[in-house]
Write a protein that binds this DNA or RNA. Structure first.
Lengths: 202, 202
DNA sequence: TTTTCCTTACTTAACGGTAAGTAAAATTAT
DNA sequence: ATAATTTTACTTACCGTTAAGTAAGGAAAA
């Protein structure tokens, strides 16, 4: 008896594949092969490919929303915003497949994102709105669109993860120039957080 | 005699389709139909689907690099950085299909991005490095990774374009709450620019 | 003996790409 | 100038492959 059920194994391998290749280039057969089973065995556990995708993404978005809520409840607005960014950054480190999946959803207008996930995203944005609103009332933050702040937080961090191969290719094109060192992801989160808060302060 | 050649028409319709549906979900047949020709007629002009994609994206990346270089040559570092961001923002407005295409490339690690485009991207980053480096030497900018700054500029602007449907869906989930107004894209560019520069100043 | 979990073998449909042929325009030869 | 030839820009009809999804059945466990 393995610790994980076969269904959980399928979700795990599906997550890897969706993250690496995207929804269209992921084949159910390849996922089955990774699990050492056949394709119809996957269809025994999941109605269709879309249902499998839902089983992959929904728990991730729920976990994210929960962590954000948990870590940004109390404190002064600057601290809560710092926590919002740090929690998101930590989530990306702990869930390495999430960046690519989320990035693709953002890129294609989230047309395929399950409603459950949209609702979880709404939860995190509600939290961000609360933080910004408090900061504005206390005259520590400028008035700013929460959607822009959300984008300023989420998309640079996500794309720092997904563009690693691109940056390596670009570095090769600049052979005899001084290429600045690539910072580690943790430092990027700190830098971004510092800059966003500084840019937002009155 | 039409102003545009059929080949140019194909590229134009292909650009629409790649932007809307992405590479995989775009079919050569659908592009042909949009041009009122048959699929093999497309293959008469282009070797294969990948070559057609190249014909769509390469001129866009080249135009972007050229505009960036042109508008960020001279001035003090803060002004050059402001121009960098504004030029990129203006390019997105003038090329409405570019955001989705670029966003997808970022999301999938740019594995399918032609080398020519990577080189044009390298040009823009070289320009940004020059701006930041001058600012650092003159003690007006903090030392910061150019890649992070590039991500802070490019990805929020792109995703403000691509996530419009997502934001609308999210707004619906928050029925009886106060939803902040959606700013216009031009204002977003200004806000972002102001925040990035403020966050970067010593 | 029924339910669970899987396999083998299959259908269906879509899509990238090609072979072969053709009407019209452009080029060359007479 | 005109007839012959070639090139351009397509069309119709097709092939090969791939991938989603299913029907039917079987072994093992409950």
């Amino acid at each position: 008896m393995s610790k994980k059920s076969k269904k959980e194994l399928i979700v795990e391998k599906a997550k890897d594949s969706f993250s690496r290749y995207g929804y269209e280039l992921t084949t159910v057969e390849a996922i089955a092969r990774e699990c050492n089973i056949t394709k119809p065995a996957v269809y025994y556990h999941f109605k269709d490919k879309a249902a499998l995708y839902k089983a992959v993404v929904c728990p991730e978005f729920t976990a994210l929303a929960e962590k954000i809520e948990e870590h940004t409840k109390k404190g002064i607005p600057t601290q809560r915003l710092e926590n919002y960014i740090q929690t998101f950054g930590a989530f990306l480190v702990q869930n390495p497949t999430f960046s690519a999946i989320f990035a693709r959803e953002i890129a294609n207008g989230s047309s395929t994102l399950p409603d459950d996930c949209t609702e979880q995203l709404a939860r995190t944005i509600r939290q961000l709105i609360s933080i910004l609103h408090t900061g504005e009332k206390e005259k520590v933050f400028q008035v700013e669109s929460p959607f822009l702040i959300q984008m300023m937080i989420v998309t640079p961090l996500i794309s720092c993860q997904t563009t690693k191969p691109l940056r390596e290719k670009i570095a090769k094109f600049a052979h005899n120039e001084i290429i600045p060192l690539e910072p580690h992801f943790e430092n990027i989160v700190d830098s971004l957080s510092q800059k966003i808060i500084k840019g937002l302060l009155c």
